[in-house]
Amino acid sequence: MSGNRETLLYLDGVSVTFDGFRALNSLSLVLAEGEMRAVIGPNGAGKTTMMDVITGKTRPDTGKVVFGKDTDLTKMDEPAIADLGIGRKFQKPTVFEPHTVWDNLLLALAGDRRPRFTLWARQTSEESDRIDAILKTIRLREHRDRRSGDLSHGQKQWLEIGMLLAQEPQLLLVDEPVAGMTDAETEQTAELLREINRTRSVVVVEHDMAFVRALGVKVTVLHEGSVLSEGSIDHVSNDPRVIEVYLGR
């Protein structure tokens, strides 16, 4: 999991201010290719804002966000960043509710996103094969023709992860994937993420410490917009500063 792999994502001194409130305070973070990273931190630590900055939703006041060798993400908008291969799952599951599970995945499949293509596009057998494969991975095969708005909360979470997979990104940003899930579902999700991590880099933001422990990856603790501590889950949970601000007095 370590070694001298190439850097995939590099945040350097990123600051974001909302009306005087510093959401990110000179945040720096390095993610290697193929790495899975868990990010934890109390409410308002800047986890979601960090995701917003990486995906182009929020422009930082200062600092650099470099993807791959030398792509500056701060100069790009959301679709361009998505096109580069960065996928994002939201805290609240967001799927296209009027569409079927199948259509949700179809829209997420990597491919030409331009209107002139989608206007004439016909579903190819290659596309259906890939959707079938993803449906299997996310355990929603029986629900393929259901309206996605009718799925349960956990199923929606998985569908969204499936959509992320269909995007075939190099980097997945996953915001609280197990919020509201049963223990069994949580376990399955951890397994799913580890499987995804075999081919892709993943950043997971999570509150659930058991889940983070189950992932067994390097952990970054955010506090007041910057990195408080970084290391294995055992390392950070023994860090006195982390204990003070987060894990409880």
Binding site: D77, E78, A82, E97, P98, L107, R113
Partner: peptide, 15 residues
């Protein structure tokens, strides 16, 4: 229709 209901989500999908 995806844009109508969840515009920002479509952006993160690259549309």
């Amino acid at each position: 229709i995806a844009v109508r209901d969840t515009e920002s989500r479509t952006r993160f999908l690259g549309y």
